[in-house]
Design a protein around this nucleic acid. Sequence first.
DNA 1: TAGTGAGAGGTTTTT
DNA 2: CCTCTCACTA
Length: 669
Amino acid sequence: MKRYKLKKNFDREQGQYAIDYKGELNPQQFKAVTNINGPQLVIAGAGSGKTRTLIYRVAYLVENNIDPSSILLLTFTRKASQEMMRRAANMLDSRCSKVSGGTFHSFSNYILRKYAPVIQFTPNFNVVDRGDSEDIINVIRTELGLNKKEKRFPRKGTIMGIISKAVNKCSDIARVLESDYPHFAENLPDIIQIAQKYKEYKHQQQVMDYDDLLVYLRDLLRDNEQIRWKISDTYRYIMVDEFQDTNKLQAEIAAHLACRHQNIMVVGDDSQSIYSFRGANFRNIMDFPQNFPGTLVTTLEQNYRSTKPILDLTNAIIENAYEKYSKTLFSEIPGTEKPIYLETRDEAEQGEFIAQRVLELREEGVPLNKIAVLFRAAWHANELELELKNRNIPYVKYGGIKFAEAAHIKDIISFMRVMHNPYDEIAWMRILLLLEGIGPGFAARIIASVLKLEGELKGLIDKEFEKKKFYLSLMELYNTLARLKKSALSPGEKLEKVVEYYQPLFKIQYDDYQRREKDLESLVRIAVRYTSMEQMLTEMVLEPPDTSQVDVEATGADKEKLVLSTIHSAKGLEWHSVFLIHLVDGFFPSSRSIDNAEEIEEERRLFYVAATRAQQNLYLLSPQLEAPSWGFQHQGYGFSEPSRFISEIDNFDGLTDSWALEIDSDDPF
DNA sequence: TAGTGAGAGGTTTTT
DNA sequence: CCTCTCACTA
């Protein structure tokens, strides 16, 4: 780890800075850091010190007496954002921790709560996740009687996907349908109707989904000049990281934010664009200079992360991209180890190899948390996880099903949600269906009764339900909620009481409740941190805790854990040694993208992102896999082919070392 | 109207 | 494989 000396006695009058910018940065980085006014685009290759440039720029601004809270750092993913904010806070001195920033979504949330009335929302609107959105769609679809129509009507998830894509691309449903879902073309009018109702519903219930956060912020800025000016005046220096992952909506927001000063720096890498499935468009980068005349463009090409042999391979990977990129990375980090390529007989062997190799690396002094296993889809690691558990190798897994999306967690959160915003029908529905004897029909009537009283909880125990056998449990629910809502307990304590109330319902609801019980304890532990209910609820959706799914706890002294991560979640991070698994056609690239040229391009960029995470060691693993029964049309006799991204590489054998597994002859098999 | 069980169909990645 | 849907029973 590099150590920075903080020189406390400097004299700014003489143009001296606490940090030796010129000495610690290369000329391109220095140029980007010290040019503080006007629009700027930094095209930064993988490992070229992109984040470093950003945070040095923060320090430089602060040293130039810019108020830290007027500096805004934005990015798309939480991971990247946390890393960026953490490193920024550690620069220079405590002033740097006052910098504003976060993900686009969390920033939007923050601003929208302030200006909620302008867009006809209460400041306690709830934010709903994808699952909740789909539930709302489902209700609407049933209400409109569209589920019984013809058999081929798209399911709720698909409908939500269509609507969301239209929003994120600033397109419309007709166009999305035409380009991505031609087989549902005939359902266009119905889907448009659902989308319209969906919007009304959310407003009526005072909830926003992920997309709304961006849309309403864009609208707020676009339609209110005064507010736009005020916000733009507040954030005088804007920096956006991973700009290639932003979509049109986010680019518009960024432009509005900069309207008063044009002090906006965006950083990105066109060859690492991997979020087009949600409307991200790397052309945002390309078009930036046109949208901001006078943009200073800097390209960072020196890689400070990987050894030369690794970089030679990653350059060869991206060489096959259809679009030719303007930069070639080089590295001065010596290294003799070429990346290692290994075909294994099956998935189990892949897991055994990794487990064994990981332990060896640790023997050699590489801490577990400096080693990562990366994969295309979360379930690719399932078998590996079993192997790691067997061998007691502690690990954390990122990506895949999230803690906050588990049904029992959502149950608890729903109680909190209705206390915070009683118009939240989806949360009510969830709660009421837990009570025995209440199904969708009565649940709807009970909710209506609550809404009639403008959200008064008393609506729960309306005389209408007095004769029903579930009345007693309704009373109990009412008592619990009313008492908690009035009480002065902290959000964490309230949540704990809810968990107590929930226990019996929980045991009836889930056969496997014992497996889930631990999660409830974790949730309570997480909840005590919060002083505000609103913050707790928002963070559960926007920055949900991602640990907790881990079963193998690190023992004793070594707290370090091996990292398992989807490639998407690994973006922007780096490890000493990286294992890339499931490099098999149909898995990576995924069979879903195989007949779409553009998607193949994105998969290749994803492969590139994965390989460029490695500093010293890179292992490429290609097991023989059985084609999933539902998967791609597998040719031949059930033998899978190594990923096309490997076979297409020029001189692959020269760039890598191939290993072959030798099975120990004492092995009973 | 709630709860259950069989069958079908879709299966990535993030906020 | 897991979730959603629909039809059936109580």
